[in-house]
Design a protein around this nucleic acid. Sequence first.
DNA 1: CGTCAGATTGAGCAGCTTCAACGTATGTGG
DNA 2: CCACATACGTTGAAGCTGCTCAATCTGACG
Lengths: 244, 244
Amino acid sequence: MTGDISLDEFFKRLEARDDIGAAERDALRASIDSFGHFDSQTDLVKEGDRPKRSTLLLKGFAARYKIVGNGERQISAIHISGDFIDLHSFPLKEMDHSVLALTDCEVAFFPHSELEKLTANYPHLTRMLWLMTLLDSAIHREWITGLGRLSAEARHAHLMCELGVRLEAVGHGKKDNFYLPVTQSDLADALGVSSVHENRVIQSLRAKGLLAWHNGQVTLPDLKAIYALAEFDDRYLHLVKEPR
Amino acid sequence: MTGDISLDEFFKRLEARDDIGAAERDALRASIDSFGHFDSQTDLVKEGDRPKRSTLLLKGFAARYKIVGNGERQISAIHISGDFIDLHSFPLKEMDHSVLALTDCEVAFFPHSELEKLTANYPHLTRMLWLMTLLDSAIHREWITGLGRLSAEARHAHLMCELGVRLEAVGHGKKDNFYLPVTQSDLADALGVSSVHENRVIQSLRAKGLLAWHNGQVTLPDLKAIYALAEFDDRYLHLVKEPR
DNA sequence: CGTCAGATTGAGCAGCTTCAACGTATGTGG
DNA sequence: CCACATACGTTGAAGCTGCTCAATCTGACG
């Protein structure tokens, strides 16, 4: 089962922000309790859960979401390989939202008891894990800005730009060309629009020559133009390697 | 200058989630470098800054915000007494947004070098500081859900409910009655609407008997009804005292 | 009394929703 | 291999939410 499984993307994500020593890598690997698989469209964790472990996404796509009163869904984050999907449940204890597998997912489980040992013995590594949750927070703020002040078209464009950069940073595809096997409905729920309108937004971007999307393969033919339309600046992703 | 200044609200905010020992309190107090004041409408930190210290808000209201291309502003968080406004700049290093004083503000500064010592010597306290940033994150997610899937009226109601609970938790007013000296424009920028529409939303809530607001004093005459309209459930604020 | 920030009002318009239908690809059981 | 089911994508038309522009009102303050 563990044959193919690697922490490559996770280490890349960390290394993109600061050096991680061999001892720290070993400590991280030793903190893993087990590996797991989730089928597409199943929940990895549910709102109200009190997980005793945190889940690192090794392979696949997942989304944090909440359901509102009328049954509509809002996605607050899309996670890719190398992302911890619920590291925050370690200090927070109770989940205030659910996480759904958008595709089949491979994961690694880190028991909170092991994470607690890390916080006692590896201060720098603790700050790096803290940092990982702060990156989620930075992305949340960017989404809030988009939802409040940008058009649906700009928001869609922005999400494509963001995913391109994040995927490239963990070695999956390029900024302007990557695999994104999710539905228009999923994207609509992330962007806060109806699936009908999301479809029209995509058509509009296609017509402008800013987006191609076939069989889950996204291409952004004119990066400069789509960055401008989306008002995208990747600084909020903090892809700067420095002592932390 | 330090005469009136106390960390009461901050300790209340922490104690609402877990016990903080005397040694931990002392360590926190000892980590303070200096105190400061900011006039209303001035920036406490600016996007792009690389602060060498983190700022704890002791008194007043502040807002994190970004400006978009057409000059519009989106507020992504409203902070009250006892909130760290840029604790995330400790691991993140660079600010990806600015923070504005909505009123006159009193603050305490924690140099990052001191925070680093805390992470080396006080693992539990470190997790509590981490927790403080994760609460911001939880609020961000709730705002995303509102911006994406609730009406402007429900969002306004939700924000009032949230601020009531948060203010009561640090000893400022009651859930249904508190002081909020900000403008309708500020709220509009937090809720992602125009100030004209925000004014109409407020009038509608007043007409329904769900909101009174004079001279900055907010009253929610029918908590149950406004919670229902806002779909407000305070679990995302994690006001549960337990070992962390 | 003039000034200014903030609040309020009206009218017309744009973005997005809703409802409903239809298209298209893939898979499945008989 | 066909009949059917299912999921996803696409299209049209009507309507609502919230925006823009512009004017007016109000209270605080010098």
